[in-house]
C-alpha cells in the first residue's frame, strides 16, 4: 500500500493505493492522526486505487472517524467500487460513514 496525501483548501485528501490490511493499517492511522494533531479536521479518503480492505483496515477507518469526530471534524469516503461497497454494507459501516461516489462529491459534502 502507498498513501498519497494532498490538500484542497482545509480538506486533507488521502489516496490509498493497494490493499489496506493488517500489515499496513498502522501507516494510515499514524499519518492521519499526525495530520489531526497538526490541525486537520476534514479528511477525505479516496479508494479509487484501493484493492481490498480487511477487518483491520475497516477498524482503522472506524478508529479515525471516532477520533476526528471527537475533535469536531469528520472523515468522508469516496470512490468505493462495488466490491468495497459490499464490504461496507455487510458490516453496516455504510451507516457509520458518509460515502460519496466521487472525490468531488466527498469534498462538497463538507
Amino acid at each position: 500500500m502507498s498513501l498519497h496525501v494532498s490538500r484542497q483548501g482545509d480538506i486533507l485528501i488521502v489516496d490509498i493505493e493497494g490493499q489496506l490490511i493488517v500489515s499496513n493499517r498502522q501507516e494510515l492511522k499514524q499519518r492521519v492522526l499526525d495530520e489531526a494533531e497538526g490541525g486537520a479536521r476534514k479528511i477525505v479518503v479516496d479508494f479509487q486505487r484501493t484493492g481490498y480492505i480487511d477487518s483491520a483496515g475497516l477498524g482503522v477507518l472506524v478508529s479515525l472517524a471516532k477520533r476526528l469526530r471527537e475533535l469536531g471534524g469528520d472523515i468522508r469516503l469516496a470512490n468505493l467500487n462495488d466490491d468495497l461497497q459490499t464490504l461496507f454494507e455487510l458490516t453496516k459501516l455504510d451507516t457509520l460513514f458518509q460515502i460519496a461516489d466521487s472525490r468531488e462529491r466527498a469534498l462538497e459534502s463538507f
Binding site: S55, V60, V62, K66, L87, T91, K92, L93, L96
Partner: peptide, 17 residues
C-alpha cells in the same frame, strides 16, 4: 458487527467477514 452495539467497535469483524 452489524448489531448497533458493535458498529463502532474497532475490532471483531474478521470471523464474521
Amino acid at each position: 458487527p452489524s448489531l448497533p452495539e458493535n458498529i463502532e467497535r474497532e475490532e471483531g469483524r474478521g470471523l464474521f467477514l
